[in-house]
Design a protein around this nucleic acid. Structure first.
Lengths: 199, 199
DNA sequence: CGAAAATTTGACATGACTCAACTGGAGTGG
DNA sequence: CCACTCCAGTTGAGTCATGTCAAATTTTCG
């Protein structure tokens, strides 16, 4: 995937939400930077302050924290066309507790907080875009909260893999389990028990 | 609380996040409408489309859905200075699955979606305000997800009542329990068991 | 092929739910 | 002021869902 193609993916993404004048396109893309990362590379480590918004052009990543016992707790799995970040650290400019790591070879396009804040001022469409995006993300999170609070493990699991059908091919079971807040052993047990419900 | 005082609370709230020129104040407040509700009154019922953004000036409310068995699942508790809504229904203009009900006599100030969308275009500070608010809400929700996914019931409970110290005086235990996703009986058991940890 | 990583299995422990009964306080009407 | 009801909260017994740990198995990948 060449540079132009990569920037085009970003623009296409913006245009799913807002109109962009030709003149804005350059102002936007000139502030973004392309990053190529290999499997297991980190985009962010606990202790660092997240200074960029990142958009996944190709590949997939996972975000996790470590609990008191040093176990990884997955907070987010993301693929192509998703923004991925620790918004807490980014927005408040405080050290993150999260790690963002590549699940496979990936292409990321990123913008610094400084530049994005400039874009918000200079290009209203970007501000508008961001409001829409974050509203959307909020609604999705809300659904996820409901799922995590009032729904049993297998139903959660089934809903998740149905919503993102190829997640099982791309992420290992133990990450999906951690994301859903259940143990990998129990998930394995459930999958066997409900085999017939899965196909 | 008189009308001016009520509008002033809204303006104060805006000004915690953005600068507002005097000229904008009237453009904003003129689009908001004050609603007085009694305990148990509904602001929204399942099946309706949420057409307003609502700000709690005084009092407290709760948001819940009904599960298959007709049991109330509390999604949100809110008091003074909070915005309360079913954003899913509001943003997508689809019928809500939620009920929003007053927990006590309350004063709400609300704006229709149509008017708020106009304000977004006419008053950039409002758009800016909203982006900040929703970003903030997103971060809070994210913390809540983490709490609901990887943390045991009592720790969740303790964290919640510590974060909102007077929540216990204002909402019944069974609502807090439902909000946290545990049964009221189990919460009662935990409270007794950990009495010493609570004071 | 061999080593490391991911997944599965099974025995056991425990956190959390269910249901039904009980307690205690807050209204309400006589 | 009492009796009554209603609702929130508590208790306890029994059960189920899910977690823990250690071992066995399968898959992945160098």
């Amino acid at each position: 995937m060449d540079t132009n193609e990569t920037y085009q993916k970003l623009i296409d993404h913006f245009r799913e939400y807002v109109d962009l004048a030709e003149i804005d396109i350059d102002r936007i893309t000139s502030k973004f930077e392309i990053i190529y990362i290999k499997k297991k590379d980190y985009l962010l480590r606990a202790g660092q302050i997240s200074n960029h918004m990142r958009f996944i052009v190709k590949g997939s990543l996972y975000v996790y924290t470590l609990d008191e016992k040093g176990k990884e707790c997955v907070n987010q799995l993301g693929f192509e066309d998703w923004w991925i970040n620790d918004l807490y650290s980014y927005l408040r400019q405080k050290p993150s507790e999260m790690y963002i790591q590549a699940n496979e070879e990936s292409i990321i396009i990123r913008i610094s907080k400084k530049d994005l804040d400039i874009l918000f001022k200079e290009v209203p469409a970007v501000s508008e875009f961001w409001r829409l995006k974050i509203q959307n993300a909020y609604v999705l999170l809300q659904e996820r909260i409901f799922g995590n609070t009032h729904i049993d493990a297998f139903t959660k699991y089934k809903a998740y893999v149905t919503k993102y059908p190829n997640i099982e091919q791309r992420f290992p079971q133990y990450m999906i389990a951690s994301y859903l807040g259940i143990t990998v052993e129990y998930l394995s047990y459930l999958r066997k028990k409900h085999l017939s419900d899965l196909f």
